[in-house]
Simulated scan of single mutants.
Amino acid sequence: MISMALSSVSLRDLALVQAVAREGSFTSAARAMYISPSGLSHQVQKVEQALGMPLFERGGRRVAPTAGGQRLLGYIEAVLGAAEHLEHAARAGDIAFGGELRLGVPSTLGPYLLPHVIEPFPQRFPEARLTISEGKPRGLLRRLAEGELDAVLAPPSATVNGLDSTALFFEPYELMLHKAHPLAGQHQVALTDLDASDATLMAESHGNGVSDLGMPGAARPERIQDLSIESLATLVALRGGYTLVPILAHDRLQSIPNVVLAGVEGARPGRHIALYWRSASPWRDDLTGFAALLRTLAGTIPGLDAAT
């Protein structure tokens, strides 16, 4: 039997405790879980009172679990995992994905890939609804691990415990240059002919910058965070220089004034895209079928290289 004190603790309360442990900060955890810091602190204290022991050491620069808290965090993770399985079991049935696939897509990929997916998805998975969430890859993978999403499209990253993945396709980058750039009139431009200090690169989408692209030198120190491809194009149009943009965005970017597009001569910078899902997902077969659909579509889209 569960005690009266513990019965007042909700799954949301346990998820808040898990967020504090993951973020190492009440403020960061509150931001990630869309709750005020004071509200989060109150809910964590409620869990601690119900369990009869402190879960975190407070007062340092980083909030750390107590020895007992570290042990109980494993049980909390198990409880949340069991609750997720219960929800999936209730949703699962003869309909693919239990009726809904909650898919996370990077904001620099979604607007250009999804138009190719929207029509064939219901044909391949009748009665299943496709729900899209956009964001940064790291944030999407975190939401996947926490059960908020069912699958995520993202570049391959460091192994995340509890997640499986399969390769989908490679998307090359092409160059976007200010129209006044000395090489703007060329159909193909070699990266070695460019000045790395003129590059405007995005922190997450372009990896470690020009060093990842085999170019000498270093990008400008004011590296920007990820934003929309159209906003990146606007920066180049205003600031000059050049950037790298995914080839799927080619048609939309052609209409932006003061910039021109060019192919990359020789080297093929770009990004690999994989499909991620939780290892414990009850829809592994459906997700495998979805990955096969995406690879088939990639094979029909000019510029993409479908994974084999």
Rank of each mutant, 00 (worst) to 15 (best):
M4T: 14
A5Q: 15
S10R: 13
R12M: 10
L14Q: 04
Q18K: 13
A21C: 00
R22A: 15
S28E: 15
P37Q: 05
V44N: 04
A50C: 06
P54C: 06
P54L: 07
V63K: 07
A64T: 06
P65T: 10
G69Y: 13
Q70R: 12
L72G: 00
A78C: 03
V79A: 15
A89M: 08
R91K: 15
I95S: 10
I95K: 11
F97C: 05
L103Q: 07
V105S: 09
L113W: 14
P115M: 07
H116N: 04
H116E: 01
H116V: 07
H116Q: 08
Q123T: 03
F125P: 04
E134M: 08
L140P: 02
G147E: 02
L149M: 02
V152L: 02
N161H: 06
L163P: 01
T166K: 01
A167K: 04
E171L: 04
Y173L: 03
E174M: 10
M176I: 03
H181G: 00
L183K: 01
Q188M: 08
D195S: 07
S197A: 15
L213Y: 11
L213W: 15
G214L: 13
G214A: 09
M215P: 04
P216D: 13
L227R: 14
L232G: 06
A237P: 05
A237R: 01
Y242C: 02
T243F: 11
H250I: 11
R252T: 12
N258H: 15
V259Q: 12
L261K: 07
G263C: 02
H272W: 11
I273G: 00
A274K: 11
L275S: 06
R284G: 05
R284D: 13
D286C: 01
P302C: 07
P302T: 03
D305T: 15
D305C: 02
